[in-house]
Structures are given as C-alpha cells and as structure tokens.
Amino acid sequence: MIASMTGFARAAGTTGPVQWAWEVRSVNGRGLDVRVRVPNGAEAAGEVARTALQKTLTRGQCQLSLALTKPEATARVRVNEALLASLAAAIARVPVPEGIAPATLDGLLGVRGVIESEEPENAETESLARDLAEGVVRLVADLVEARRAEGRALQEIINGHLGTMIALTQAAEDCPARTPEAVRAKLAASVATLTAGGSGLDPDRLHQEAVLLAAKADVREELDRLRAHLNAAGELITGGGAIGRRLDFLAQELGREANTLCAKANDIALSRIGLDLKAVVEQFREQVQNVE
C-alpha cells in the first residue's frame, strides 16, 4: 500500500479547566519538514509532537499547531497571619504620641507582605503534559490513516495511468508502420521518387542512405526501455512503502523515452501513439509527486 503526502488530523480534549486541540496538515514536499506552532509555555509538548511526526513520516510538509483555551485567570489572596500578628504586637509595645491615631487593621493590611497573591496553577501541569502527549499519539495515528486513505485513491489513479501506458507501448509495438514490409515499401517509394526522371543520383548510394535512415528510425530500444520502466513502476507500486522518489525518477525516464519515440517516428500513426503516451506520462508524473 502506498501513502499520499496529503492529509489532515485533529485531536482534542479537556484537562481540568483547560481545553486543548492539536491540528496537523501535511502536503507535498521534497523531504520532511515539520513546522510547529504552540502557545508560550507549551514548547515541550510541541517538541514531543515534532519528534513523533519525524519518527513516523518520511516526506511531506507538515504544519502542526496547538490551541489552549483556559478560564480567565483569577488571583487568590492569602493573609500572612504571622507577619500581621508580629506587626500588631510590635505596635502594641510602642507608645503612641498624643494626637496620633492608633494603627488600624486596614492600615496593617496595607503593609507590604501582609497580603500575598497566589497565581492559579500553570496550565503546563503534569496532567496536562500527559494528556497532550496522549493526544499526539492519536493525532499521528489519524494523520497516517488519512494519508493512507488518500494513497489508496491515488494508487487506483496511478495504476490506471500505468495500464494505459502499457497499452500504448504495445500499440506502438504492433503499429503496422513498423513491419519490415511497410518499411521496405516506404523506402522503395522514396528511392523511386528520387531517381525518377533520370536525376543522375546513384541508386545504390540512395539505397545505402535509406537503410541508414531506417536504422535510425527504429524504435525497438525505446520500446524495450519503456517496458522495463513500466515493469519497475508496477513492482514498486505492488511493494508499497515510501516509493515516491523512485516513481518520480521512473516518470522522468518514461517521459524521455516517449519524447525519443515521437522524434524517431516515421509514420503518422506511430507519432500519434507517441504523443498520447507523452500526455499519459505527464499525468502519471503529476500523480506520483503526491506519493510519500
């Protein structure tokens, strides 16, 4: 089974008052590129996710993001009773001059350190970190399945192109213009045209040149290489795995042979087969560039 480089996955959950959601999108890429975007304080979770993707995938550009939704932070207040009692005892021991009001509770509470603020727990708790890591496992598994599902559809298309190229190669093999009789008849007609009317051209020399031209126009080697490349592509697809790069290389070689076939074709029917083959090879190459 082959896999596409295109896929999307999402994993979400709730840990205490915090809601979180991982999302990852992957598209075509020459290699593997994982880009991570997480909120401040969640960098460790982002690295866990990056590592998991890098260990699982071989190619593709991945955009990974984490969204955290927390309740509005409300500070909790604590009275430093020991400090307050110490201040009150100290003031009680100090004689208050006439005309000065004694210390009051609200005054003592205003002394720095008597009232302390406790910030709510940071969202990056052990529990949240654990849940985010478990979410990454689900996220990566879902992305792999999405890419495989896309790969199954892609494989059908690629196999269709492969079958068409095999049929066109066979059509070129069976083209009547390639039979020895047809080649001899065409050469004989060309030589007869050139020697008609006593042009003074040497018939033997013309015959030699015609034979050389016929040899240059022979597409046997191109057809043999086309078959070899098509067989190799079929074996790769059957074996599955990360075969995108090798399929892309074979697509380039198929295109090269199809171009040569068109250039050497000495008949309209064979030229049309070559042009049709070039079109299908290009479609094949566009699809295999999506394969991991």
Score class of each variant (00 low, 15 high):
Met1Thr: 12
Phe8Tyr: 15
Ala9Met: 04
Arg10Phe: 00
Arg10Cys: 12
Ala12Lys: 11
Ala12Pro: 00
Pro17Leu: 05
Val18Arg: 04
Ala21Asn: 07
Trp22Met: 04
Val24Lys: 00
Val24Ala: 15
Gly29Lys: 05
Arg37Ile: 02
Val38Met: 09
Val38Thr: 12
Asn40Leu: 10
Gly41His: 08
Glu43Trp: 06
Glu43Val: 12
Ala44Glu: 13
Gly46Asp: 08
Val48Gly: 04
Thr51Cys: 02
Lys55Ile: 00
Leu57Ser: 03
Thr58Arg: 14
Thr58Trp: 07
Thr58Ser: 14
Gly60Ser: 08
Gln61Val: 13
Thr69Leu: 10
Thr69Gly: 04
Lys70Ile: 11
Lys70Arg: 15
Pro71Ser: 09
Pro71Phe: 06
Glu72Pro: 06
Ala75Trp: 09
Val79Leu: 15
Glu81Trp: 11
Leu84Val: 05
Arg93Leu: 11
Pro97Met: 06
Pro97Gly: 06
Ala103Lys: 01
Arg112Leu: 06
Ile115Arg: 04
Glu116Asp: 12
Glu119Ser: 12
Glu121Pro: 10
Leu128Met: 15
Arg130Asn: 08
Asp131Cys: 03
Leu132Ala: 03
Glu134Asp: 15
Gly135Asn: 11
Val136Pro: 01
Val137Ala: 14
Arg138Cys: 05
Arg138Glu: 14
Leu139His: 06
Asp142Tyr: 01
Asp142Arg: 13
Val144Asn: 06
Glu145His: 09
Arg148Ile: 01
Ala149His: 11
Ala149Pro: 00
Leu154Gln: 03
Glu156Ser: 13
Ile157His: 10
Ile158Phe: 05
Asn159Arg: 14
Asn159Trp: 03
Gly163Cys: 04
Thr164Asn: 12
Ile166Lys: 10
Ala167Phe: 01
Leu168Cys: 08
Thr169Ala: 15
Thr169Tyr: 01
Gln170Tyr: 00
Asp174Met: 08
Cys175Gln: 02
Val183Cys: 05
Lys186Gln: 14
Ala188Lys: 15
Val191Met: 12
Leu194Trp: 03
Ala196Pro: 00
Gly197Ile: 07
Gly198Thr: 05
Gly198Ser: 09
Gly198Asn: 14
Ser199Gln: 12
Gly200Ala: 10
Leu201Glu: 10
Glu209Ser: 10
Ala210Pro: 01
Arg220Gly: 14
Arg220Phe: 01
Glu222Asn: 09
Leu223Ile: 12
Leu223Asn: 02
Asp224Gly: 01
Leu230Phe: 04
Gly234Ile: 02
Glu235Trp: 02
Ala242Thr: 11
Ile243Phe: 04
Gly244Asp: 02
Gly244Trp: 00
Arg246Glu: 15
Leu247Cys: 03
Ala251Val: 08
Leu254Val: 10
Thr260Glu: 07
Lys264Ser: 09
Arg272Lys: 14
Gly274Val: 05
Leu275Lys: 07
Leu275Met: 13
Lys278Phe: 07
Ala279Phe: 13
Val280Gly: 05
Val281Lys: 02
Glu282Arg: 11
Gln283Met: 01
Phe284Asp: 03
Arg285His: 11
Gln287Asp: 06
Gln289His: 07
Asn290Lys: 08
